[in-house]
Design a protein around this nucleic acid. Structure first.
Length: 277
DNA sequence: AGCTCAACCTGGCTGC
DNA sequence: TGCAGCCAGGTTGAGC
C-alpha cells in the first residue's frame, strides 16, 4: 500500500500526537516481520521521549536522545493511533503506548520492518539501508532543473526500462508502482523505453510529473488502493483518479485508446500506447 | 556495477 | 461450496 504519499500522510498524522511524548510500554504480538523486530525493544524505548518524527524515502524515523527507530510499512503496513482501550486486531504486530493512546503497527503480509539504530559515530542517514536511497523528490537536490539533470546523468548507459529504473529508487525515492505508471503517463513516456535512451527534454517532463503526481496524492490524503487508511483510520481518495494504474482495458482519458498492462521486472505496468511513445 | 529473478507472507479474487 | 492458482502497494540478496 504505502508509497511516499501514504508514508508522508501517515507521518503527518501521528507526529502531532507522539512528538515530545514518552513511551510507557511496548508490546510485540508478532515480531517476525521482514526482519525480526528487536526483542529488547521494550527495554530500549520505555520511558524514552520521541524527540522528532521524520521521513526518509518510505521509511519513518523516530528520533530519541539515545538513537533512532526506523519503521518501514512494506506492502500492507499501517500505523494508527488508537485508544488503549480499543482491543488489538488480527495482524496488529507491535504497539507503542503513550499514556492513554497507543500507536499500532498493523501489517497482514509482514513485509514491514522495525530497526533500532543506537546513537553512535555513524549518523542514522549514513547506515547502508538509508544511504543507498536516491534523493527526496521534494528536496533541494531534485528541485527545478536538478531533478532532470540527475535522472539524465544517472541513466546514461543504463539498459533497463525507464519504468524499472525509476522504480528502483536509486535516483529519486518514493515513486512506487502506482505513481511510477502515473508519472510516466503524465510525461508521455513509454515505460518500455530503455532509461539510457530517454532524452533530457523528456526527463524534464518526467521530473515535473513526479513532483506533481506525488504532491497531488499527498493533498488527497494518500492512495485508497485496497486498504489504505491514514493514522486516524480514514481512507485516502487518490485511486478514484488514477489515469492508468489498475485501468487495464478501460479507455484512456486523453485519447480513448484502451489502457494496456504489461509485466516489467515482476511488477505490473499500466500505460497508454498511443499517448506514451 | 548492472541485470534478472527468487524470496519474504497473507488475503482476496477468479475460474473450474 | 471448495479449492487451486494467481495477484497485490516493497525491498533484499544471490548468481551471473
Amino acid at each position: 500500500m504505502p508509497e511516499l504519499p501514504e508514508v508522508e500522510v501517515t507521518k503527518q498524522g501521528i507526529a502531532p500526537i507522539i512528538e515530545g511524548k514518552s513511551i510507557s510500554d511496548v508490546v510485540i504480538y508478532d515480531g517476525r516481520l521482514r526482519w525480526p523486530v528487536p526483542i529488547n525493544l521494550k527495554n530500549i524505548l520505555c520511558d524514552q521521549k520521541v524527540r522528532l518524527l521524520r521521513r526518509r524515502g518510505k521509511y519513518i524515523l523516530f528520533e530519541f536522545d539515545h538513537g533512532t527507530m526506523i519503521i518501514h510499512l512494506g506492502m500492507t503496513g499501517v500505523l494508527r493511533i488508537q485508544e488503549k482501550t480499543e482491543p488489538a486486531r488480527k495482524h496488529d504486530r507491535v504497539e507503542f503506548h503513550f499514556g492513554k493512546k497507543v500507536l499500532r503497527l498493523h501489517d497482514p503480509r509482514k513485509f514491514g520492518s522495525i530497526h533500532w539504530h543506537p546513537l553512535s559515530e555513524t549518523p542514522v542517514d549514513e547506515i547502508p539501508m538509508l544511504k543507498r536511497l536516491g534523493v527526496e523528490p521534494f528536496g533541494p537536490a531534485f528541485e527545478g532543473a536538478l531533478g532532470a539533470e540527475l535522472l539524465f546523468k544517472k541513466s546514461r548507459s543504463r539498459t533497463v526500462s525507464v519504468k524499472e529504473f525509476l522504480l528502483a529508487g536509486q535516483c529519486v525515492v518514493g515513486v512506487g508502482n502506482i505513481y511510477c505508471s502515473e508519472s510516466l503517463f503524465t510525461a508521455g513516456i513509454n515505460p518500455k523505453t530503455p532509461a539510457g535512451k530517454v532524452s533530457f527534454k523528456r526527463y524534464e517532463l518526467l521530473a515535473e510529473s513526479i513532483r506533481v503526481t506525488l504532491e497531488k496524492a499527498i493533498e488527497a490524503g494518500g492512495s485508497s488502493l485496497k486498504d489504505f487508511v491514514n493514522s486516524q483510520g480514514e481512507p485516502g481518495h487518490f485511486m478514484v483518479q488514477t489515469k492508468v494504474y489498475d485501468r487495464t482495458g478501460e479507455p484512456c482519458h486523453q485519447c480513448q485508446s484502451l489502457i494496456k498492462q504489461i509485466k516489467q521486472g515482476q511488477r505490473s505496468t499500466f500505460y497508454c500506447s498511443n499517448c506514451q511513445k
